[in-house]
Design a protein around this nucleic acid. Structure first.
Length: 283
DNA sequence: AGACAAACCTGTCTGC
DNA sequence: TGCAGACAGGTTTGTC
């Protein structure tokens, strides 16, 4: 489900929890990715009684910082994960795995809740300033919103990689945050064929792709992310970007470039659906 | 190195 | 109406 724009949308809508204190932690016993349930002991030690000082994002990971312990709750939403701020008197959504009760703020008491039906998500604890030591973050690449991903960097990253560009974009060790929707979108924006080998990218085309990645992600972010099925932000609202997608999930439909009469095609690369216009994304 | 499949899970949609 | 099968925004692991 969630790629960088969706995760960043969640991060922004989590702003109201900054400054609140954690008064209680509840966890389910169902295993998430990695085969283990959320560790109540670890999450409790990191957060109980502590004040939330910030909510950060790196690629598709969220970090909820706690002031007194200098620890962070590390969350990856997987495919169907949701992180919501909900009134404490509301019933738990199905497949809820973590509930953090929060004090402070105005109005009724609120919880921070994580739910995830498919259980591909991750909830863990990292140490502030030493995020890299957490195995999930150890190999994570540059963030295309908070870091600079320009043509120069992309050109450098693609040297020595003979994989298809689409596959390269999905590799979180290079650029962190691009997923299956925005990989297709960025390649269309840059007029590049998804099957082009990464190391064949010219400097000029590396510039175009770098610009496209940034533009596609920022545009999706402006619309609050893409909700095809499950995604909602921390307030429970869906994103609007599905109405603005250029190619994703548009097989058989007309290319949206005004000067192109191509028909969007779908194929499978690396076991994932790739959408492109064979006419304007040419070699 | 990289392509591919399968695995982890549940929910939803399609076609018979 | 019901049921089997395909498929889904992510990532890891194993095989060839």
């Amino acid at each position: 489900m969630p790629e960088l724009p969706e995760v960043e949308t969640v991060r922004r809508t989590l702003a109201p929890i900054v400054g609140r204190r954690v008064t209680k932690v509840w966890t389910s016993r169902l295993a998430l990715r990695g085969g283990k349930p959320v560790s109540k002991r670890k999450v409790g030690a990191a957060s109980m009684g502590a004040r939330i000082s910030d909510v950060r994002r790196w690629g598709k990971y969220l970090l909820v910082d706690f002031e007194q312990t200098q620890r962070s709750l590390l969350v990856h939403l997987g495919m169907t994960g949701r992180l919501r701020v909900i009134r404490s008197d509301q019933e738990h959504a199905p497949h809820t795995h973590l509930v953090m009760s929060l004090s402070g703020g105005r109005g009724a008491p609120r919880d921070l809740r994580f739910s995830d039906p498919r259980r591909f998500g991750i909830v863990s604890v990292a140490t502030q300033g030493r995020e890299r030591e957490h195995p999930a973050l150890a190999k994570l690449g540059v963030d295309p919103i908070t870091d600079t991903v320009d043509g120069e960097l992309l050109y450098r990253l693609t040297r020595g990689s003979r994989r298809a560009l689409k596959t390269f974009l999905l590799d979180q060790r290079a650029i962190a945050g691009v997923g299956n929707i925005y990989a297709s979108e960025a390649l269309w924006q840059a007029r590049l064929p998804p099957g082009l080998r990464a190391h064949r990218l010219s400097r000029k085309r590396a510039e175009a792709l770098a610009a496209a990645v940034g533009e596609v992600l920022r545009r999706a972010l402006e619309h609050g992310g893409t909700s095809l099925r499950d995604f909602v932000n921390a307030d429970g609202h869906e994103g609007e970007h599905s109405h603005y997608l250029w190619v994703y999930d548009r097989e058989g439909e007309a290319c949206k470039r005004s000067d192109c009469s191509g028909i969007i095609r779908r194929r499978v690369q690396q076991g994932r659906a790739t959408f492109s216009c064979p006419r304007c994304q040419s070699k």
